[in-house]
Design a protein around this nucleic acid. Sequence first.
DNA 1: ATGCCTCCCCGAGGGAGA
Length: 259
Amino acid sequence: MKIATFNINGIKARAEALPRWLDEAQPDVVLLQEIKSIDENFPREMFEERGYNVETHGQKSFNGVAILSKLPLEDVSRGLPGDEDDKQARWIEATVIGKQALRICGLYLPNGNPVPGPKYDYKLAWMERLYQRARDLMAAEEPALMAGDYNIIPQAEDAARPDAWREDALFRPESRAAFRKILNLGFTEAFRARTRGPGHYSFWDYQAGAWNKNDGIRIDHFLLTPQAADLMRDCQIDAAVRGHEKPSDHVPVWIDLDL
DNA sequence: ATGCCTCCCCGAGGGAGA
């Protein structure tokens, strides 16, 4: 089962590039971030005609997450628990019914800049809520994953120019510590379980020719429970997608599970 | 790099992103 995460930076703006990638990559499940659309305006038909079930958690203009799945989805839940007042659409989860059930969580973690400030406070508070949800997932001792745009550069090797990110919310020690705290529950970061060394990125800024200089950062991640990690056959970044027509600034990351 | 693009809103130009 091929499962991908892709921050598309606007569903309307990706009306050509996203179907093109779907037809090429043929993922079974896709977690989308930054759909920037309310549920009513999401072009479900574009995906349903390709055989996907569609579940969205959108909001106007900003954020918004969705799940596409060729397999049935059950028990869909929207919004990260822990703060009734948080209206930002950054979390959706569902159970994929394959040979065995897999709980999948799609997330768009807050950017957090500038540091310090209320946006950074919101990022860290959101990560504490994520930790609580992660702890419950781990306690269930079942195949599960949390994937999406984490807006976290885990290590210096995950940035082409780490010194340029030292004071950024994506790389600040507090942000990385919060990410490690979640990993330390026992999650496997899928890409780093299989590939080591620098030069592997999932985001390149639109500005200053970042793609042509390979001036990127790796901020889109898969976190797997042990029961899911044991099923992993592969994990790759579709970096070439960044060079296609009218690309998102992120590219897809995918895993293959024996499931 | 105090943001060089690109997205959204809509129908100008500002907020947000990372």
